[in-house]
Write a protein that binds this DNA or RNA. Structure first.
Length: 565
RNA sequence: GCGCCCGUAGCUCAGUUGGAUAGAGCACCGGAUUUCUAAUCCGGUGGUCGCAGGUUCGAAUCCUGCCGGGCGCGCCA
């Protein structure tokens, strides 16, 4: 670890690892420290079974021998049976952390790799629904986390603005479209048309042909009616999406719809052909993936000559590689598309690229409903705006009740409501399906976003009332805040692990522990009004470290940080 | 039928990549505020880690087989 930014407990962990490695005469990378289950055992632990086996001795004896051999600065080693436990000395811990936690670069990294993150990617002409929440908040969080670690991050929104579905929409628009309705509520009207198409398609076979003709016209590249209307729908939809992106603090460097790659599709097909991977099958063009262990081939062109999702994704990937030469390109897309990504990577592999393995699907579980499945086609959707609005509305009532004197209740309510929804999504493992439950999403107590925001706001409040510079901090007066320092000290490692595993939950859980330690701290140890300016200064430093770390952590997750609530 | 994911307290979830007595929140019960925001804090009740085998010093975690749920499986995205 050659990075120069403060790493919290990692500094002590490194010393322990080095000392143990030296004592065992092994390279340091063979030593894996764990976290004791019981906090009273200290911050790090190491079971001795493995090493005892190699040395053919009793694990407990080895542990005992190591304890007497080890001499680590600021860390006390002890053994319980075959376990070695390490406890950072109170004063050293407080000294290190009281300084680290307040630094602007606490936990930051100095990587210079280039990471692309594709996320959100809603479909034009359909409302963003609750399912888009996951990709949007997970993707935005991962992008911020990688950026915090120093990566050159490129955020891409791969808008679904192309494909045969737009043939359907255009066919429906020709028959039942209304200019007035479109102007008033664009997405609502387009959704209505889409739903009606699917309803009438069952009894009217001419619709299907009309839809295919419309898409053919659209894909012809000519400036015709199909293209003009499609463009109009696209602009109107994007206008509505932008409000949601802003509310969720989801920013993008590139909003590139699938259509952006339209003029690259022929080149892509030729590139595949040159690589010798194309085959013709029933008039369609495919890439066989049997050799890669995938029994379903990848379809590149339909028998009608139109392109498909996979074609456009391949073109996009190649275009991105040519443009960015990324170290990794993450696709935050639902788990139900796992096969698609397997196929799409396998095609690139068969083409002989040396970068196919830098493409990574970041799958997440489905949002389900107890009342049964939602379906865009049938018009049963839970709009994301509605979820956010409802959370904000409830937050508004609570602010009114708890802090009637707040100067800007609407703004806090927006921040708290959004924070609750965003955090609720990010505190779970992304792979697991989630059952949408209003009671949980709208909960503001316990392990929730508002709890973290509250803790942060309390810190701000104390610092505001102190109203002065914090100077001459004496760490000895903070040696009794062990739980707080340990929790804060784990923040840098949590950020790194969240990035490595592409799992924001790891950061979310760490922040909850920090907030819990923080709440206990300022409840037990009064900061202001002690008639002891030296003690007050020291505790203010702790509060400021807590505030700073929470502010950074919440920012990374996309949870707003009001200073008063 | 085949493939992938999931199964831990009444509910929602963690569980440090195989380690010590399986932990939080919600709910329920009992406490805490003359002072920095009670969206809080402290304590209690609550477990056959889906089931059965296997691997080994040691399994919620790894392997196999079942059971249950979700998703996917060439001309949609």
């Amino acid at each position: 670890m050659s990075e120069s930014t403060p790493h919290g407990l990692a500094i002590f962990a490194q010393r322990v690892t080095d000392a143990v490695a030296a004592a065992l005469q092994l390279p340091a990378d063979q030593i894996q420290l764990e976290r004791p289950r019981n906090e009273e055992h200290g911050e790090f632990a190491m079971p001795c079974f493995r090493f005892a086996k190699v040395q053919k001795c009793n694990p407990a004896e080895l542990a005992g021998r190591l304890v007497s051999d080890l001499n680590i600065a600021d860390v006390t080693a002890s053994n319980i049976g075959p376990f070695l436990n390490f406890r950072i000395d109170d004063l050293a811990l407080a000294t290190q952390m009281a300084a680290d936690a307040r630094r602007e670069d606490f936990g930051k990294g100095l990587s210079s790799e280039r990471t692309l993150v594709e996320y959100s990617s809603p479909n034009i002409a359909k409302p963003m629904h609750i399912g888009h929440l996951r990709t949007t908040v997970i993707g935005a969080a991962l992008a911020r986390i990688f950026e915090f670690l120093g990566h050159d991050v490129v955020r891409i929104n791969h808008i679904g603005d192309w494909g045969s579905q737009f043939g359907k929409l255009l066919a429906a628009w020709r028959r039942w479209g209304s200019d007035e309705k479109l102007e008033a509520e664009p997405i609502a009207h387009l959704l209505e048309l889409y739903v009606r198409y699917h309803a009438e398609e069952k009894t009217d076979p001419s619709l299907d042909a009309a839809a295919k003709d419309e898409f053919l016209a659209l894909e012809s590249g000519e400036e015709n009616d199909a293209r003009r209307d499609w463009k109009h729908f696209t602009e109107l939809s994007l206008g509505e999406f932008k409000t949601t992106f802003e509310r969720l603090d989801a920013r993008f460097d590139l909003i590139r719809g699938e259509s952006w790659y339209e003029d690259k599709l022929e080149d892509l097909v030729q590139w595949l052909d040159a690589a010798g991977v194309l085959e013709w099958n029933d008039g369609a063009i495919i890439v066989d993936l049997e050799s890669e262990g995938i029994s379903t081939p990848c379809l590149v062109k339909t028998s009608r000559g139109t392109t498909l999702y996979a074609t456009r994704d391949l073109a996009a990937a190649k275009s991105r590689w040519d443009e960015f030469h990324f170290d990794r390109c993450l696709y935050v897309v639902g788990a139900e598309q796992s096969l698609h990504f397997k196929q799409f990577k396998a095609v690139l592999k068969r083409c002989g690229t040396d970068w196919w393995n830098r493409i990574e699907h970041i799958p997440f579980g489905l949002v389900r409903f107890t009342e049964g499945k939602l379906s865009t086609r049938e018009g049963r959707v839970l709009s994301l705006q509605d979820v956010l609005d409802r959370a904000v509305e409830l937050a508004r009532e609570i602010v009114e009740a708890k802090n009637p004197d707040h100067v800007d209740k609407d703004w806090v309510a927006e921040q708290v409501g959004i924070g609750a929804v965003v955090f609720h999504d990010l505190k779970h493992q992304r792979q697991k399906d989630v059952v949408f439950n209003w009671n949980e999403v709208l909960s503001f107590e316990g392990d929730t976003g508002p709890y973290l925001q509250y803790t942060h706001a309390r810190c701000c409040s104390i610092l505001r009332k102190a109203d002065r510079q914090i100077t001459d901090v004496d760490p000895a007066l903070l040696a009794d805040a062990r739980d707080l320092w340990v929790a804060l000290g784990r923040f840098p490692a949590a950020v790194r692990e969240a990035a490595e595993k592409r799992e924001p939950m790891l950061l979310a859980q760490t922040l909850l522990k920090i907030a819990a330690a923080g709440n206990s701290f300022y409840r037990e140890k009064r900061v202001l009004g002690n008639d002891d300016p030296v003690l007050e200064n020291a505790r203010l430093a702790a509060i400021d470290g807590l505030r700073n770390t929470l502010a950074h952590g919440l920012m990374l997750l996309g949870v707003p940080t009001p200073e008063e609530m």
